[in-house]
């Protein structure tokens, strides 16, 4: 758990507003993500958490500072940092199996291995029965599982998720959250997850990076101490743990401070 996988070092992002003006969206953000850990970026809207995630993915370039993956500066998107988006990204013209095989296919993995890995991850996300269906035949939650299986099957060092369950209804959402804990335990996946949902953050995170808004700055690094060493894969169980309610109150206070500051 202690080896550092990802490091952000004074990362800034300025957006050009035209006529020589610019807006600082992210300001000197630094943190580390340990191997096999789940790091959650949390904060009110406008705190630049998605922008931070996109810079880790290499889809945006930092205006200043560095993103280092295993000590190497990130240069553009790559298969070592797979990303799951809030919007559906299934390739509608391919079956679930072909979707999940896509990353491996373009990276030259042999057909036999592709097949085996695809089946493994499709089963892991509970879509075994739908392996030959088209995504258009699936519900929103199932499509999001396809996206997760597709990214995991590609074997990334780091799984990035940008509000992945934001578009799902409440019940599907907590099923998916429990699924992510199972996946993290079973596959030892390292994850960075963006959310604005406090409950989701506490449930998933080994570490919460709380960002303040306008511009996005690191406000606090929070470790949910009550679950150190053992993640809890059951939502009902976690809310009864001593320390849960206190942490939730603390984060709500942080959110409120940010909200009234504007």
């Amino acid at each position: 758990m202690s080896a550092s996988l990802l490091r952000l070092d004074g990362v800034c992002k300025d957006f050009d507003l035209g006529r020589g003006r610019s807006l600082r969206a992210v300001d000197r953000v630094s943190f580390e993500v340990e191997k096999s850990s789940i790091c959650v970026l949390l904060g009110p809207s406008g705190c630049g958490k998605s922008t931070v995630l996109r810079m880790i993915a290499g889809l945006e370039e930092p205006s200043d500072g560095q993103v280092l993956l295993q000590g190497q500066p990130v240069d553009g998107p790559g298969r070592d940092r797979g990303m799951v988006f809030q919007a559906y990204t299934s390739f509608d013209w391919m079956s679930v199996r072909k979707n999940v095989e896509f990353g491996m296919r373009i990276n030259g993995i042999s057909a036999a291995e592709r097949r085996e890995r695809a089946e493994h991850f499709i089963k892991l996300v509970g879509l075994g029965k739908f392996i030959d269906a088209y995504p258009t035949q699936l519900s929103g939650g199932m499509r999001q599982r396809v996206a997760i299986a597709r990214t995991l099957a590609n074997g990334p060092e780091l799984l990035l998720m940008d509000e992945p369950f934001g578009a799902l209804d409440a019940e599907t959402r907590w099923h998916m959250q429990e699924l992510m804990i199972e996946v993290a335990n079973e596959e030892q996946t390292s994850m960075v997850i963006v959310t604005h949902d406090i409950e989701e953050a506490i449930f998933l995170a080994d570490k919460i990076i709380f960002l303040s808004s306008h511009p996005g700055r690191l406000k606090e690094e929070i470790i949910p101490e009550f679950k150190i060493g053992h993640r809890i894969a059951d939502k009902e169980q976690i809310i009864q743990l001593p320390g849960y309610a206190e942490l939730e109150r603390k984060i709500m206070r942080l959110m409120r401070e940010e909200g009234t500051r504007e």
């Binding site: 290499g58 298969r79 797979g82 990303m83 988006f85 990204t89 990353g103 373009i106 990035l160």
Partner: peptide
């Protein structure tokens, strides 16, 4: 064509020509 589809391909390791022809 939605930007997320293209960005998904890129973060799966697709180069330019794979992004254009396969996505």
């Amino acid at each position: 064509v939605r930007r997320e589809l293209i960005e998904t391909a890129l973060t799966l390791g697709a180069n330019r020509s794979i992004t254009v022809f396969n996505v």
